[in-house]
């Protein structure tokens, strides 16, 4: 009975011990992925900002500029890209909509971002674009990969439509979470005008006035290292309309403000991340360590049972050994003389 129990325990021990590394290095990379149908909105605000008035082409102070950023997972398009490339991808159709204090549109920039659901690396398929212009990303955007590393990443800048390093600047405590802080600075760069501008103005009209758009930003993210999701984002963002071919003429400030996530959205992001990180930690830490510990314990118990079983057997047969070199004496079948025991 003990022998049987020790074998069952041994099978269980091997099962659990094998599961531990399999969960961490086989299941986790395949199961942890950004859901294809994710929908998320984030509201950011810039208080006391400077904004261009396109009617007069003069900058003016506004009490508040609101940026509404929506990410919507396009499952149908993701399936098509998967069929074409064989990769598990997420297609995000996004809209960054800036509204003035009166709620009217300031800019409206749609975007399509196609990326690997597991690694968050961009996938060049499925019509990735910014404001209708095809782009080719070579860095992340909006979200970091799972299990973020303490290093610089390459981050796509939607305005310049280029990818540049975003630097790891250390670990910070944020709303009870230990998060990684990243910073990216985009130097003054000429950028395309959005296709949709206020008052029905077209980019061509602005160009005909002899103006071009320049932009610089300092971008900051507080990122949960487990899920790779930012729990806070800020931008010190400046835009100017410069006179084409006339560097001596004073540029017009188109926007100047410190854009921050609205506090209720920060709370919502922190709450979501706190629940999601438990699922990731379950696969990377909690279950593998628990299974490894339990497996080792069961293995030890199985060995103890086996050893006890053997010593009991030895005790049981030890006194009944024959004088022929140690073959255990077996009870003779009925009717057979006992003298036949031993050597032939």
């Amino acid at each position: 009975m003990r022998r049987r129990a020790s074998l069952v325990l041994l099978a269980l021990a091997v099962f659990l011990t094998a599961l531990a590394p399999l969960l961490r290095w086989y299941v986790f990379p395949r199961m942890a992925k950004v859901p294809a149908g994710r929908y998320q909105a984030v509201v950011l605000e810039a208080k006391d900002a400077t904004l261009i008035d396109y009617a007069t082409l003069e900058p003016r102070r506004v009490s508040r500029l609101t940026m509404i950023q929506t990410l919507k997972g396009n499952v149908g398009q993701a399936d098509k890209v998967k069929e074409a490339t064989g990769r598990d991808v997420v297609v995000w159709d996004t809209l960054t909509y800036a509204a003035g204090p009166d709620g009217r549109m300031v800019t409206r920039i749609p975007e399509r971002y196609v990326f690997d659901a597991h690694t968050q690396q961009p996938v060049h398929a499925g019509g990735e674009n910014v404001d209708g212009t095809p782009v080719r990303r070579d860095g992340i955007e909006y979200k970091w990969p799972f299990l973020v590393e303490k290093r610089d990443y390459r981050y796509f800048d939607m305005m310049t439509r280029t990818t540049a390093p975003i630097h790891y600047r250390g670990t910070r405590s944020f709303h009870g979470l230990d998060v990684y802080y990243f910073e990216q600075t985009i130097p003054w760069t000429q950028v395309p005008l959005p296709r949709q501008l206020p008052l029905g103005i077209s980019p061509d009209t602005v160009r005909q006035l002899g103006l071009e758009r320049w932009y610089t930003t300092q971008r900051m993210f507080w990122v949960d290292p487990v899920t790779g999701a930012p729990v806070n984002g800020e931008e010190i963002h400046r835009e100017e309309m410069r006179w084409t071919g006339h560097p001596e003429k004073k540029p017009i400030t188109a926007f100047d403000g410190h854009v921050r996530m609205r506090p209720d959205y920060v709370d919502a992001a922190v709450s979501l991340v706190k629940s999601q990180r438990q699922l990731v930690l379950l696969l990377t830490d909690y279950l593998p360590w628990a299974f490894a510990g339990l497996g080792t314990g069961l293995l030890a118990l199985s060995l103890v049972l086996e050893a006890r079983g053997r010593s009991r057997d030895r005790r049981a047969f030890g006194g009944k050994r024959a004088h022929d070199g140690g073959k255990p004496a077996r009870p003779a079948p009925a009717g057979e003389p006992l003298s036949r025991g031993g050597s032939p």
């Binding site: 299941v27 149908g37 929908y39 509404i68 919507k72 499952v75 809209l95 549109m105 609205r262």
Partner: peptide, 23 residues
């Protein structure tokens, strides 16, 4: 891993052009 997590569906929610009152 062969079964994998559910794919989900595209949300019917629109891309927003006004700030919601709550997240």
């Amino acid at each position: 891993t062969a079964i994998g997590p559910p794919r989900g569906t595209t949300s019917p929610e629109p891309l927003l052009t006004s700030a919601p009152a709550h997240p």
